[in-house]
């Protein structure tokens, strides 16, 4: 078996003296969708940022494609082929949509910009209509599409998405999830997904992990996690698991 594309071993990270990650072990294999679920404040976003060295892991090691990246500068990590659509979207507000996408393509010097733009616009037709609009004036959902599109523009080997469905209308959520699944199926893109919506995420993913208070408490095939009673109780009940209209996005 090949070595995992991304692997974390005993990773701890702190904000000041407060621990946000405690000894996290995690693998993402090439071609997989792996999801991380957990309550608010569990450390999911921190984990994604720690992979990029911001904050830096205080102990443990992080390897990507066989290289130890634990101590690399953030920009050098990104250039290895990791892209992130971060929490809060973080589009560049005073740049146009097109310029934001160009920033995504910057690490290839814009070599594939034309054809990749085409692809992102097919995925999110909304962006195509708004290429010249200032990103800061777009709606929340549009900004989310832009953040994902920008990440795709770098042709990542590993795409990391932090709550891509946050604040979006059910129809758009569906659209984004089907886009994610298509990217994985058709292009074999490896995806690491952090989601509020545990039900959708586990439906989509091959494997999942549960993060509680900075610790991974459970890992396994997504199917198995969906059926796990403790997960059902903690993350799937309370409106997130539509029983009748599976995947139709009918929510409270």
């Amino acid at each position: 078996m090949n070595a995992p594309l991304l692997s974390l071993r005993g990773v701890s990270a702190y904000y000041g003296s407060v621990a946000a990650l405690r000894g996290v072990d995690l693998d993402v294999n090439e071609g997989e969708i792996v999801t991380l679920i957990g309550a608010n404040g569990a450390g999911k976003s921190t984990l994604m940022m720690t992979v990029f060295g911001a904050p830096r892991a205080r102990s443990g090691t992080i390897a990507f494609a066989g290289e130890d990246i634990t101590a690399r500068p953030t920009h050098a990590i990104a250039r290895l082929g990791l892209a992130q659509s971060p929490e809060g979207r973080r589009v560049f507000p005073r740049m146009s949509v097109q310029e934001n996408l160009q920033m995504g393509a910057a690490l290839h010097g814009g070599r594939y910009f034309g054809q990749d733009l085409e692809k992102v616009c097919t995925l999110f037709p909304r962006l195509k209509e708004r290429l010249n609009q200032r990103a800061g004036t777009m709606s929340g959902g549009e900004q989310q599409m832009l953040a994902i599109g920008r990440a795709l523009m770098s042709r990542p080997r590993l795409l990391m998405l932090d709550e891509p469905s946050l604040g979006l209308a059910p129809l758009v959520v569906k659209q984004i999830f089907s886009a994610i699944s298509a990217l994985n199926r058709e292009e074999g893109m490896t995806i690491f997904l952090v989601e509020q919506n545990a039900y959708h995420a586990l439906k989509l993913a091959h494997r999942g992990s549960v993060l509680v208070n900075g610790r991974i408490t459970l890992s396994g095939p997504a199917r198995a996690l969906l059926d796990d009673p403790s997960i059902k109780a903690a993350y799937l009940e309370g409106g997130h698991a539509p029983t009748a209209s599976v995947g139709e996005g009918v929510q409270a």
């Binding site: 990029f52 911001a54 500068p73 953030t74 920009h75 990104a78 250039r79 892209a83 992130q84 971060p86 973080r90 560049f92 507000p93 005073r94 740049m95 310029e99 160009q102 920033m103 995504g104 910057a106 690490l107 010097g109 814009g110 920008r150 770098s154």
Partner: peptide
């Protein structure tokens, strides 16, 4: 130019610029 864009990106969100591979 790409350099100018990188400059404006650092201006608007330095951390995000780094996440996109810009050497801030």
């Amino acid at each position: 130019t790409p350099f100018g864009r990188a400059q404006r990106a650092c201006e608007q969100d330095r951390k995000m610029a780094a996440l996109l591979g810009i050497d801030v």
